[in-house]
Design a binder for these strands. Structure first.
Lengths: 257, 257
DNA sequence: ACCAATTTGTCCGTATGTATG
DNA sequence: TCATACATACGGACAAATTGG
């Protein structure tokens, strides 16, 4: 047995099903195949690549999982546009497997929330502010239902990210969100006045949007997240503890992936 | 044909290969199968699941793509730990397909860079500061080689993210980085004094780390990124133009994925 | 270093359920 | 309603690579 560390992947090693996947992927990322375009039947791919159906099918599975290709209602292959949520779900799963801590999640959420509110203050439309106010009203109505409050809080911040007009920011936040919001429910449940403090913070954030007051937005973003952290620690939880896979399981059941 | 929108996915619809993949995934994310653990041979999985080998293989391909399982040197299946870079690569590919603009990338990079420098100032070790200084020295030596300057700039910020001690932040930035740094080379090439300004900014960032001066760190992070933006626009490029797939192709060739 | 057993990669043929026209 | 096309799934087969004696 050789002790030498391989520097190069052996050139003969790439199986046919990987090459099939890569060939199709190249066509898509290069733009020659647009999202929504039909990829042809398996039989056609068999003919084009000159490999067996089983091989084509394995290659298809590789891309199918990443969302790069998918099947329409009649199970025909079409080029797909990888959806944010799907990728975010994989990211948060990776975060859990890497045992990141709640502190890391919280720090990242703070940075991204501050950027989100700043951009939203510049770009928020009346329609969006109205949607946020409806969300606050719904949260007030559900203030005694921690689970619903947690859900509505997630929707509030999702709408805020939408308002920022920055999809990169939204995508960067999503993995953290998927792990943080399930805990919000617990925080609201544990802390007396938790729901009220959350609602008030949301109100002040909307006020900041209306007045286009960036300082106010930053202030209440910080307070809102600090409240979350205090609630987290008041519940006897360790801020430097790795995110538990239990959280991910709960989240995945809701998403229904 | 029914015009009714389906409310529920039909329960019989999940193909056997998907159920195979999901069953294995559950074992992994729940922690019952640890990264590095052997998954058994295909024949064993055929026996356990009671399906055909082709079906097992298709299910395996689904997980293989996400990095959740991989093959060791002898092509046996083992549980893998999805690597950041792999996911970041898919994320940036999705960003390109969604035609995000350089403005969106830049705004996200700004938010994350500011957070990174703040945390790094709290947590940077002497070893790390030394590594950053070596990087600056190397950049000075290569100041007339735009490509090398671009690479070293990427390494500088990567090290800075490492110093922040926050993997979520690092992961959130990586997709933007993969699209931004290839352009840094062009910016340095176009702008006279580009390399000098870059080097000076890096020096001031290291100074901020040494003095533990957060204000200084934020100031020069902003200046550094504003420089990048000015250079981008001086090159006649449109800041609100979608990221071109050409960039991704160039990047993917370097990574060699 | 050779040999036998195991395992993966690939291929072939066929049957079945389902969607489309 | 019927016929066709297609994806899904199965069983079997063989070559190449790898392992372990």
């Amino acid at each position: 047995m050789s002790q030498v560390i391989d520097r190069f992947p052996r050139i003969t090693s790439m199986p046919a099903y990987e090459r099939v996947a890569e060939a199709i992927e190249q066509e898509i990322v290069s733009g020659r195949l647009r999202p929504g375009a039909a990829l042809g039947t398996e039989a056609e791919l068999v003919r084009q690549f000159g490999v067996n159906r089983s091989t084509v099918r394995e290659g298809i599975r590789l891309l199918e999982q990443g969302g790069l290709i998918r099947r329409d209602a009649s199970r025909r292959l079409i080029v797909g546009l990888p959806h944010y949520e799907r990728l975010a779900s994989r990211m948060s799963r990776a975060l859990v497997l890497h045992q990141v801590t709640f502190r890391e999640l919280w720090e990242a959420a703070m940075a991204l929330s501050l950027a989100t509110i700043e951009l939203s203050i510049d770009r928020a439309t009346p329609q969006l502010i109205e949607a946020l106010e409806r969300n606050i009203a719904a949260t007030e109505a559900a203030r005694h239902d921690p689970q619903r409050v947690g859900e509505l809080d997630g929707e509030f911040h999702m709408a805020l990210e939408e308002a920022s007009g920055n999809r990169v920011l939204k995508l960067a936040r999503e993995p953290s969100n998927m792990l943080i919001y399930p805990v919000t429910e617990l925080v609201v449940r544990d802390v007396a006045q938790g729901a009220e403090r959350l609602i008030h913070a949301h109100r002040m954030l909307v006020l900041a949007l209306k007045e286009r007051d960036a300082d106010l937005g930053r202030l209440w973003t910080r307070r809102h997240l600090n409240d979350w952290r205090k609630g987290f620690e008041l519940g006897g939880r360790d801020f430097d503890q790795p995110v538990d896979s239990v959280l991910l399981d709960a989240r995945r059941q809701k998403v229904g992936e």
